[in-house]
């Protein structure tokens, strides 16, 4: 059912008798004009050419007049992102799919790098040099704990294998 807009409140007894513009909890964030009561009718800026894939929220009717040029959706992560944008911002499916797409995109990035013969320098990318310089103690602790966990898992797995072979 479509709601009818009711612009005439004069028949409502007592309407706005206590209205006080000073009682405005959003002041001074908002210089209130109530322009939004007229709906989506402002003079829009010129539209940036939509010459690439721009996913847009289904809670708006269009692509905003400008948008960014950070990477377009691509590959498997792109497919997941397209799926996500079928759901509104109100849906967990929207956000969880996007987070999942981000993790897939990380793997795609690694594969792309390797395909280009550019093996990522994980130590530099993670800034471990800075950590070593400024907080060697924590880093040694992390490396020790990490090594112990990996060694423990390796020993457990090799133990299991020995049981069967």
């Amino acid at each position: 059912m479509k709601n009818k807009s009711n612009k005439d409140y004069s028949h409502i007894k007592g309407w706005a008798i206590d209205a006080d513009p000073k009682n405005d909890p959003v002041y001074p964030m908002k210089n209130r004009t109530n322009g939004e009561h007229k709906g989506y009718n402002w003079k829009r800026p010129k539209q940036q050419a939509v010459d690439r894939e721009v996913l847009h929220s289904n809670e708006r009717p269009n692509v905003s007049a400008v948008f960014g040029l950070a990477p377009e959706p691509s590959g498997l992560s792109g497919m997941i992102r397209r799926f996500a944008f079928k759901y509104s911002e109100n849906e967990h499916t929207h956000w969880l799919s996007l987070l999942f797409a981000d993790r897939v995109n990380e793997l795609e990035g690694l594969v792309d790098d390797i395909k280009k013969g550019q093996f990522p320098n994980i130590i530099a990318e993670k800034g471990w040099g800075a950590q070593w310089k400024h907080d060697r103690k924590t880093m040694i602790k992390k490396i020790t704990v990490g090594t112990a966990i990996v060694a423990g898992i390796a020993i457990m797995l090799s133990g299991k294998r020995n049981k069967y072979f």
Binding site: G35, K38, R44, H56, S57, V63, S64
Partner: peptide, 26 residues
Amino acid sequence: IACGQCVFCEQELYASCHESNPQSTA
């Protein structure tokens, strides 16, 4: 990033511009 023309920018809610972000209405 604010257009200065939409109803939100007009009310100085520049963080809420409706013409600079297609992906999220929030």
